[in-house]
Structure formats: C-alpha cells, structure tokens
Design a protein around this nucleic acid. Sequence first.
DNA 1: CCATATAAGGTTATCAGACAACCCTACAAG
DNA 2: CTTGTAGGGTTGTCTGATAACCTTATATGG
Lengths: 239, 239
Amino acid sequence: MGVADFNQIRRGEHLPERVATQIGKEISEGRIAPGDKLPTEHLLSKTFGVSRSVVREAIAQLRNEGLVETRQGVGAFATDMERRQSIRIEQDNLSDRVSFGSLFQLRLPLEIEAAGLAAIHHTPEDIARLDETLGRMSGAERWTNEGIIADLAFHRQVAAATQNEYFLMFLGFVAERIHLAINAARETAVLEEIVEITIAEHVAIRDAIASGDPSRARSAMRDHLVGAAARIDLSLDIF
Amino acid sequence: MGVADFNQIRRGEHLPERVATQIGKEISEGRIAPGDKLPTEHLLSKTFGVSRSVVREAIAQLRNEGLVETRQGVGAFATDMERRQSIRIEQDNLSDRVSFGSLFQLRLPLEIEAAGLAAIHHTPEDIARLDETLGRMSGAERWTNEGIIADLAFHRQVAAATQNEYFLMFLGFVAERIHLAINAARETAVLEEIVEITIAEHVAIRDAIASGDPSRARSAMRDHLVGAAARIDLSLDIF
DNA sequence: CCATATAAGGTTATCAGACAACCCTACAAG
DNA sequence: CTTGTAGGGTTGTCTGATAACCTTATATGG
C-alpha cells in the first residue's frame, strides 16, 4: 500500500487545480490503484497545507473527470482510466513541440474524414456559412486576429457540415487547442504564413465539399493540412 | 438582460451537481449569453437557498467543463461552447441508433490512422502485448466477458503503439463508449457475432502492424471495423 | 487640464470550525 | 444466532470571517 507522498503546495494561483493535478497524477501513475481509498479530506488538507474547502473542490473536479468516486460517510475511491467520463488536455503540455505534433497528427485524419463526410451530407446553408466565413478571411494582406478566428470558424463549419455531432465536438476541441498553441507561439516568433496560399486552400476545400465529391474534398483538406504543417515547420507521418 | 429565473432547490442528493445543472442550463439555452456575468455567489446562494460552498462547488464544476470563467475580484462569466476544456458524452445519448452510428463513424478514421501509425512506430514490446491479448481472446467458442475485455484492450494497445498520447486518449475514450453501448444492447438482444471471424481480423491487424507496412495495417483495420459494423447492422459512409 | 496616486467598495479565493447525514463496526440484548 | 444500538469515522453542508484582487471614483500634484 504505497502511501502516496504528497508535497506541500506553494501558493500562487488556483490551489484546487494544483491539488487536483497532484492527486490525479498519483492515480494515473498508479500509486493509488483503482479501487483504493484516498486519504480523508481532513488528512489531505493537512498534508497539502490547504483548507478542506480546497481539497473538496479538487476532489469534486476529479469526480467530474471520472477519476474518483465518493461515497458519503465512507470516503473517496479511485476509479480506473477506462471509466473516464471526459477528455482533458492541459494547455501547458502543448508548449513542447513533440506534444503539439502529436495533436496535429491526431487532427489530420479527423479533418480529412470530416471533409469527405461534409461533401456527402452538407446542406445549402452549410455552404453559405462557409462562403460567409471565407469572405471574412480574405481582404487582409497579413494575418489579422479576425482572420485567425475566421480560419478556426471555417474548420468548425466543415465539421458541422458532416451532420455528425461528435465530429463537431472532437474536431472543435482539437482545432481550438491547436490554434491556442499557435497563437501562443506567434507571440514570441512571428510566423511567416502566406495569406494568399492559405485562403486559396480554404477555397479549394469549400469548392470540393460543394461539388459533393468526397475524395476530392479529402484531398483538398489533406493538402491544406500538410501545407499548414510544413509552414510551421512540423513534420508529420503521411500516407 | 433576461434575469434567469432560478428555482429553489429541494434537498435530496448532491446539491452542487443540481445547482450546476440549473446554471448550466441557463447558459446552454442562451438565457445567460456568452460573456455575460453570472450573479454573484452570495446572490446565487440566496436564490437557490443553499450555502455559498455549494454554489462555489457548482461553479467550479462549470469552470472545469469550460462553460464559465471566473476572475477573482470581478465575477464569473459565461463562455461559449467552442472554448470547452473537456469533452463529455452522456451515455444516455448513445442509446439511440443515430447517435451511436455517428460515434462509430468518428471512430473509423481514428482507428485506421492509429493502425498505420502503429505499423511505423511500434516497439517489440507493443507486439508482445498484442500477442498476449490475442491469446486471451481466442479459445472461446462464444463471446465471453473476458473476450470482450480483451477486444477492448487490443484496440487500446494499438493506440498505445502509435506512441502518440492523444491517439490513446481519444481512441480509448471513444472505443470505451462504444463498447459500453454494445454491452448495454447485448443485454436485451443477443447479437450473433462470429467469434472466429473477429479473431481472424484481429490477427490480421496484428500481423500487418508487425510487418511495418502502414497501408496494409490501415486496410486490415478498415476491414475489421467495416465488418464489425456490418455484424451489428450498422451502415457507415465508407470511402 | 491632465496624468498619476490613493481610497473605497464589491467580488472571488481561501480559511476555520461546526453540525448534519451517512456508513461501518463492534458489542450488547433478546 | 439474530437483532438492535451505540460509537466513531467520513463526506456533505452551513456559517462567518479574512485575504487577494479588480473596478471605479476621488483626490493630488504637475
């Protein structure tokens, strides 16, 4: 029964978050096995050097993520990862290049498949929305903040055009994370993306979807993503 | 400024959960628009007739789900769905066939791509784990509970063999949901899946990955999934 | 007049302590 | 042996207070 050696937590920002992270780490790294009982809230609060409210909020978060279950009068118990009710990505993790590349690699098949499905299932309204968004993207010489938001919206609308709620959910989530990471990187080193090319690629995607040809839509999306990856110096595994 | 008419909450079970549900409903149904400020914790606690602790825990939950953001000294604000920090699927939603099919459709490209990446990046240990799992699957005439668990484990191990943490995270999540839904369906109507075929398909996937040929691995996985979908009477959009 | 400090009030974040609700175990009573 | 009950432990909820922080208004100095 490895007794999970916690560290005192240092102040700074959002204590419950950090407490939850530490406890969560103990669980996902196996030091607290599934089914094991967590220390009592009272003990945890003493261990971390924070109040019981903070510990409670941390445990509540873990319960939301499905990592622990609590039973009044008994205690809190770790559940195994397979039962997780939600997916969560810490934004910090995306700062390193390997992790960012992994997420982009995940995005690739999702976007391509979404484009193909969109070609089949899109409605006239979907195409109209895409056109409206493309209008907002063009007209700018350099990347404006507006243009970046429109870019994100474009990809969301493609996902929506699949008429598949899960594509919208997952792709929206992944694309958002990637854009945030790119924006963060943009602050330090200004990336030289050629606006015209990017817009042209988007137009090609729109036309392919509108044509109703799934393989053409998939190709267009693939070309766009591979190009985008290359423009930010990212190497992917392509087939 | 629609003033969000909350009701007093009745005791019974898990107050924060229900408070969060009510507030969350106000947001997702648009009565509290993105960017709007929520009532103060003090006011909410009076409105709901619960203590501030409960309100805080409820808001913390919404914050975890990404529906609200809080700024110390200012207030809590509703954010829009695009910014959601986590993905969540209610198991109930998968009971209807359309939703289930949508999730399976999402799984398709993820699994196929994962098989391709696994063919490239797998380690000898990955192959050994796959073999061990295949051993647990075979030997049974009918589908045992053990066999189903092994099936799930096999797919998780393929995802792990990509050496891409996000494939493991997303695919593990999606596959788990699908298996749960299938199991639930199995209780009412016993599905006649031919064990031999399913196992043979898994072996084919394993061999393809071990061979290091991505396109062969992708084909094998695709055949398996398409076959599995057909066996449970599901029609997919295939390219 | 303008820009910068400073004070005031409101809000969230955290703390501390108490009581309620609930569960489990052990022990006593029948 | 079964049932009842008392006790201690744990989570759930309540209350009130203090700290940290933000916004706005006011004062101050140039």
